[in-house]
Each structure stands twice: as structure tokens, then as C-alpha cells.
Design a protein around this nucleic acid. Structure first.
Lengths: 234, 234
DNA sequence: GGGATACCTTACAGGGAATGTAAGTGGTTA
DNA sequence: TAACCACTTACATTCCCTGTAAGGTATCCC
């Protein structure tokens, strides 16, 4: 059975175990990377853009819980928690923080592979979606989802909110938005951005999403998401 | 914490256990239905359209494996396998057949709720998608996915393939397709269907999906999906 | 307080994609 | 071989999207 060349990242400080995981997964046909920077792990993970993350709870420096929580606010790949502690409390906490599965060491290779494969399969339809807090955007169809509500945006509206989501929670300068939507070369009109922001805000308000795009005078725009979120993403 | 009124179906012939499951889930705020027809379970499950299915492996009559396999070809809600047998082989088989999680009895209520909640959350973005074998269609955006390839259809193309997928693998008469796409009242032109089928087939062939819509002369059209599918959906 | 700057809002028109209609072709059946 | 059924291509209309224009409103600073 052939496996697509999916990228899996392993965040595990026990080098022996990390090596073992790497072997098992690589033999199954996955591309595997092992986390090296335990000081700023989320940076390295986000820049690698894995299709799945295997995360040890007890990393040096930061807690696995915090990493999981942070990543779930910004990304949409599954996270499998691997830990030595066989504790129901830990498992419940992990699931509550957005983890997608939970296995205890010592792990059975077949079980690990089966779980990994199932997670990748489940998330197949979700790959490529842009996420920011409670918002999810499909950059192909410009479908925006928040909780149980969803909205179909036009291409221009979608591109604007896409860059705001990708930079969330930063403030994005006008020039950067214009460059992202219309390209850096073709300068058109300074008015074009406010016009399309009006359209975007009008569309968003049709579902009661008011004040989602905040104007920072003289600096740019920013996503303003009131945090009435799901428990797992808090 | 409030839970949306999600519908969970329990397929469990042990009445005592079913009752216990029902209580736990209902107390958590879910709408729960217990399967009663063990002769044709898939009919009852599909007509109830649950957001999640809790499935015992050892039902009278049909095997849980078969039910799981069948449902995964036609629907897109998560399936949680619940069984008395604590066997790695069973767990691997269940995951291989498309099950989304696997718990053994006696179950811990908190663990069950955590798993259920995670599954519902994971599948939130997938709800409402139409599935037929290896194909998945979003009836809002008309995005069609097959494996790693995806295609954006127009509304007419999407509606045609939607009804073919919903009836899969049956042959769908022309009249039914016309009724589904253009409504039963407004009769337009007999030629309109072949024209749009040409367009649909042309669009599909742009990704190499030839002969996917088969003509049954004098009867209608049918989805013809060559079964080079994922292992879990075989 | 008043002017200047930055941003917002509404209306309008051009362009392009989607789709119904028309006309003609190809294949199958009796 | 004729009748039927389905396919194909081309064309024209319609509708949505989107840039432009023009004027309005709010905020900042002197």
C-alpha cells in the first residue's frame, strides 16, 4: 500500500524514542522531521507545515499543552499526543485542549501507524484550510466558517480576510493587503481597499458578525474576534 | 458548557449498556437515538442522519465491520466503535475499516464524552458534505474532491453530480435529474440535460476523470467509480 | 475650532463567467 | 433504413463581480 508523501513532525526530546518513531514512520513511507528547537518549538513547527504532529507532553522548556493549544488556534493539522503518563486526567486534558488522539508509551508500532493513518485520512478534506481562532476559511472556494454558521465570500472579500487570518492577531498594513489581493506590480487606486472592506463588512454583518475587521488608523486592519469559542480552542 | 443539539445514534443490542450510554450522552446535552432495527440497521441509521454513530461490533445479524464499511461509503459522520473485546487486532481492523475511534467496555463516561466531543468537533467542517465512494462534494461551493485532487464545479454541474452521488450506485432517470436541478414545475428543454452533461464530463476530464458519468440508454445516468480507493473505504 | 488627512459609503458601468437555446451530428435499435 | 435517443458545438443573454468616481464622515493636530 502506497502512502502519499505526507509530512509528519515529531516533537520528542527522548532521542532514542524519537529515532524509533522516525524509523517506524519513515518505513511506512512518510516524510519525517524531528523537532530540534525546544526553545521556540511552535515557530519551527509552523514553518515546517507538517500534515501531522506527534507531540510529547513533557518537553523541556514549554509544556506540550501550551504548544497544542497555541497551534490549534493557528493551524489545521492533527496533533497526536504521545506521553509516558498513562493517566485519564492527562488524556481528558489533552483532548480538551484540542489534541486529536492520545497514545501512551511504550507505543505499539502498528497501533501508532493505524492512528496516524486515520488522522491523516480524517483531515484530508481539511488540509489547506486557513484558520484563525474560531474562523476557518477555504482559500479555494472562499467559504468562511465560524461555529455552525458559514458564508460564501467573493474572491476579493476572501483574499482580504485570508491575509488578515494568516497574520492574525497582528495588524496588517494596507500596502500588504493590497499586495496580497492585487499583486505588488499593478497599482490601481487607493480607494479600492476601503470600498472592498465595506463590501466585506457588509457581507460579514449579514450573519451578525459585526466589528470583525477593526481599523487601526494610520496602520492598517486587524481581525477582532470576540472569544466565545469552543472549549478546545481556548 | 453548552453543547449544540447534535444527534447521536447508538447501535448497541445490550439494552442495559445502551440505556447507560443514552443517559450519559443525554445528560451532556446531546439528542440520542437508540437503534431498534437490527435487521436492516443501515437503513435506520441513514434515515436518522446522526452526527455521530456509536457502534457495537457484535450486533445480532450483521457485523459491525460491515455496517461501518458500508456507511463510510455513503456518509460523512464519524463512527465510534465500542466493543467488549480488548484486542489490538480488532482495533486495527476497525480503524482500517474507517472507524474514527475505538473504545472498550466498560467505558469511562468522561473518556467517552471527551472522545465524542472531539469527534464532533473534528467533523464539524465536514458536516453536510455529500459522499459517494471516493468522491466528496460540498453542495454549497460545488467543490468536488477525490483523493488529493479537487475541482470547482459550476452550480449546474454540481447539482447534476450531487443527485448522482446521493443515489449512488443507482441509475438515475433523466426526469429525476431535471427535477433536482431545475425543479419539477419549470419544464425547459429536453436538450438541456445532455448539454450540461457534456459540460460536466468535460470539466471532470480536465483532471483525468473520464467515464465517471455513465449513460444507461433509455434509463438515465449513473456514477461509475473505478475502485482504486483508499484502503479504509474498500 | 478649523483645516487636513484618513477612511467610509453609495452609485454606476464595464467585463466575464455561467447557462439556456438552437442547430446539427453520431450512434443504436427495430 | 428509418426513427429515436443522446451528444456536441456555437451563440446570445443574463447576472454577478469588481474597479472607478464622487461625495460624506470621522479623527488628528495645530
Amino acid at each position: 500500500m502506497t502512502v502519499p508523501g505526507w509530512k509528519i513532525m515529531i516533537a520528542e526530546d527522548d532521542l532514542f524514542l524519537a529515532r524509533e518513531l522516525q524509523t517506524v514512520l519513515a518505513d511506512a513511507g512518510y516524510s519525517v522531521a524531528v523537532l530540534t528547537d525546544f526553545v521556540r518549538p511552535t515557530d519551527e513547527i509552523l514553518s515546517y507545515q507538517p500534515d501531522l504532529l506527534i507531540l510529547d507532553l513533557n518537553l523541556p522548556g514549554s509544556s506540550g499543552f501550551d504548544i497544542c493549544r497555541f497551534l490549534k488556534l493557528r493551524s489545521s493539522f492533527p496533533i497526536l499526543i504521545l506521553t509516558a503518563r498513562d493517566s485519564l486526567a492527562d488524556e481528558l486534558a489533552a483532548l480538551g485542549f484540542g489534541a486529536d488522539d492520545y497514545l501512551t508509551k511504550p507505543f505499539d508500532p502498528d497501533r501508532l501507524l493505524a492512528r496516524v493513518q486515520r488522522l491523516l485520512e480524517t483531515y484530508r478534506l481539511v488540509r489547506g484550510l486557513v484558520r484563525a481562532g474560531p474562523l476557518t476559511l477555504d482559500p479555494e472556494t472562499w467559504k468562511l466558517v465560524r461555529g455552525e454558521l458559514h458564508l460564501l465570500l467573493t474572491e476579493t472579500e476572501g483574499k482580504i480576510i485570508e491575509v488578515l487570518m494568516r497574520k492574525f492577531p497582528e495588524t496588517v498594513p494596507q500596502a500588504e493587503i493590497i499586495a496580497h489581493v492585487w499583486g505588488k506590480e499593478t497599482y490601481i487606486d487607493d480607494n479600492i481597499l476601503p470600498v472592498n472592506l465595506t463590501r466585506l463588512r457588509k457581507t460579514l454583518s449579514s450573519l451578525g458578525w459585526e466589528n470583525m475587521v477593526e481599523t487601526i488608523r494610520g496602520q492598517g486592519y486587524r481581525l477582532q474576534v470576540t472569544e466565545e469559542q469552543e472549549p478546545w480552542s481556548c
